[in-house]
Design a protein around this nucleic acid. Structure first.
Ligand code: MN
Ligand code: MN
Ligand code: MN
Ligand code: MN
Lengths: 217, 217
DNA sequence: ACTATTTTTTAGGTAAGTCTAAAAAATATA
DNA sequence: TATATTTTTTAGACTTACCTAAAAAATAGT
């Protein structure tokens, strides 16, 4: 149905529309896809013809119900493969994203159901991101980056941003993994750095780090 | 280096050149790729430019050392994935080929080494085909289809042809799997059908079946 | 309200991989 | 050897996904 490229565009549109209720704009999508606005306009016409998005000229695009379902299937595959790579093959969590970007396009409903079963029907991927079930149902929890939390807050790490490999390496080093207890010990107004208690260790982290550690809101 | 399409052409050329020492002809390749001769001519120019084959106009192509190595890596991936699907995910051996055709193009040296380790460094895939090692070394045993064997021969099934899903379903039903003992009980000259002893059962099989069951020559 | 700037779309073009139809080369036949 | 047939290549065209440059629409500034 959708080509590999179309799947990637649709996934990007879905992610950009998460949270915000506004339409996804051409330039934002071009930025996300590392491509040019003209290419985006070409592609959104195709996706619109395939009825996975609605498109109004100059006003951006919205994902349809059909499109959301297809996007969630790609995301399901991505996160199941990441889980496989970490849990079964022993990959580090900072090594899986690029490979999962390829594996998410393998087309075989049977494969993904068998993989899900093999992994024990995981609810979240190695970075704490929820895995949509076979019907496309996803548990959306509002997550808050810890840089926005007050001093004294304590809870558990729910997820981390999985975009940057070097960030993930550092988060792993300080023990900031999903499920780990975390407490905000202090905040520095000047540079928005903070001191946290994690894994029974006091750690100072900059905002560049703290905005990538998420707790349930 | 090579695109998905180029990988598929190269693999087909490699398979067509196996056994025979002659150059692979345009029409044979077109047939194997389910495409037209004109498309093949275009592609072999590209593969020749990338030095994975040598090409002489009107006389066909040959795989270079570099090309053989690249083809064997694709075949290695295909067979490791088939083994994963059967051994770990519980696929039947007639269900894996199409999915492996997709998975063989995933590009990640680390992934394939980890997968090999996870599977316990298998020597053959579910159909008995040898899996090239990480250096591209493959154990080539001369295999003979049992329709060419004399009455009275006994040995073990080494491999089966994995091309047709319905054939594989039937072979599985009569128990013709790699490693199973087999004996030729009788041959009928008229239609080249034969009676074999397999799995302690006498089975009559037509040539269409017997030419797809292979033993070590 | 009228420019100026930014954003988006359109126009036209490229590369990969495919096709059909026609030309060229190789092979088979008489 | 000359002709007929088969095989292969070339020519020209289509689709997908991309690009640059120019036009059009929307937004911002005065
Ligand atoms: Mn990821
Ligand atoms: Mn992830
Ligand atoms: Mn196969
Ligand atoms: Mn096989």
């Amino acid at each position: 149905m959708l080509s590999l490229t179309e799947e990637n565009y649709l996934k990007a549109i879905y992610h950009l529309s998460e949270g915000g209720s506004k339409a996804v704009l051409t330039n934002a999508l071009a930025e996300a896809m590392s491509t040019k606005a003209a290419s985006v306009t070409d592609m959104i016409k195709k996706l619109s013809a395939k009825e996975v998005i609605t498109y109004e000229k100059y006003y951006g695009v919205n994902v349809t119900a059909k499109g959301k379902s297809e996007a969630l299937m790609v995301i399901r595959k991505h996160r199941l493969w990441e889980t496989f790579l970490v849990d079964k093959l022993g990959f580090a969590w900072d090594e899986v994203h690029e490979v999962a970007e390829q594996l998410e396009h393998i087309s075989s409903p049977r494969l993904i159901e068998k993989l899900d079963e093999f992994l024990g029907y995981p609810k979240v991927d190695p970075h704490g991101d929820p895995i949509p079930d076979s019907k496309g149902k996803i548990k959306v929890q509002p997550l808050i980056p810890i840089d926005q939390l007050p001093v004294g807050f304590h809870g558990k790490v729910a997820a981390v941003k999985d975009s940057d490999s070097n960030l993930l390496k550092y988060l792993d080093k300080i023990g900031a993994r999903p499920g780990i207890k975390i407490k905000v010990l202090g905040k520095e107004e000047y540079d928005e750095s903070m001191e946290i208690l994690i894994n029974d260790h006091r750690v100072f982290i900059s905002k560049a780090v703290s905005q990538n550690i998420l707790v349930v809101g």
